[in-house]
Amino acid sequence: MDMDAGMSSPLPGGPVPVVLIGAGKVAHAAHLREIRDLPHALRLAAVVETDPVHIDAVRAAGFPDAVICATPAAAVRAGARAALVCTPWWTHRDVVLACLEAGLPVLCEKPVSLDPAEIDELIAAEAKAGVPVAAGYMKRHDPVVARFVEHCRDRLPGARRIVVDIQDPNAPHQVAHLMPYAPPPFGPQPPPAEQALRRALGPAAGPARREAYARGLGGSLIHQVNIVHAILAGGGRELSGRLLHADLWAAGAGVGVRWRPDGELVVDATHLRLPGHRRYRETLEFTAEGSVATLSLPSPFARDESATLRIDTWDADSALATRRTFTAEPGHTGFRRQLAAWARSLREPGAPALPGLAEVRRDTRAVREAALRLV
């Protein structure tokens, strides 16, 4: 993986004591159940949360001894040595800055920020604090996704097209069975989010562009933009500055973007919100000379499914074709592998660092450019 170098000295051996900041939907649907199943990697020492329902749910989820704190600094006094940030995206800048001021390495859910100015501020604060900020690109930790990226890098000189297609219910029923209380309904962005989007996109961007940026582009496709950037890393090709067009349709439920990194390669990415669909579907396809690789990913919250990669290759001279299929063990989700990798990066000298703020800045630049060009 193309990841930022870790900046802090490793923590002692044993499970890393962490503070969970924000015990809402993603914390309950993903992180808490994985922390509970990774007792040798992580220990929930503290929780920063104000909602009593959320706090009671953390206790009931198997963490009766976690100290409830008001601030990251208080969590440090309670024994926390790293922070998992799961608050709403528009709060991330302030929360991550508070963590860095307290000396806490951070794993922040995506999007870390949708405002390039905030990302630059976080990069400067990270350098000053000397502790790393990792981004929640949990898909990158799936071994099937890693094999897809490796195959695409090997075939990049002959690459012709990368296609991303997401069909997303983006509805409460996706996570309702994982939540100890009713998940929040899908609705408009709250006022603080609208203010953050106006700052990020400028006054000329209307409601449709802001909504597409917050959900289809910045809330979902930024994951796949990160995968595409991982494929292109080191090859001199970029998405930012190479945008052909960006489309919005179905009253904002559909967003599609096309980039042309060079004269040989086109990248197409589409996100459709389809609340009537019961299942999330995601496909990435890489087409090159003599090869097509198709990656299918289940809902990121699914434990009973795994990613599947099919690689088809053929030889024009012999007319022989081969197909290889790769899957991973169900249950070992991207969230779990990400948390385990984060713990290793904090605890073990020389362990690989996770994707960091440099990748966040590159990805955000590409999706923000698309949001400003939506038609």
Rank of each mutant, 00 (worst) to 15 (best):
A316F: 00
L114E: 06
D317C: 09
F148W: 05
A341S: 05
P143C: 03
D56W: 03
A23T: 10
H229Q: 09
A146D: 05
D304H: 06
T364V: 06
R362V: 11
D115P: 01
H177S: 15
E238F: 03
P203L: 08
I231M: 09
P105R: 03
A319E: 08
T50S: 15
T308C: 03
A127G: 01
R140W: 07
A196R: 07
A23L: 10
A5G: 15
R362L: 10
R324I: 00
G158P: 01
I311H: 12
A74V: 04
A74F: 03
L265T: 01
G22H: 12
S306M: 06
H40S: 14
G235E: 11
P12D: 03
A73K: 02
R336M: 13
V131T: 13
R147Y: 02
V112A: 01
H245L: 07
L100G: 02
A5F: 04
R347I: 01
E282R: 05
V16N: 13
F148H: 02
R210N: 01
R336S: 13
A341C: 04
D56F: 06
V360L: 03
S9H: 05
Q174F: 13
I231T: 01
I311C: 14
A302F: 15
A293G: 12
G206N: 10
L272F: 01
G187L: 08
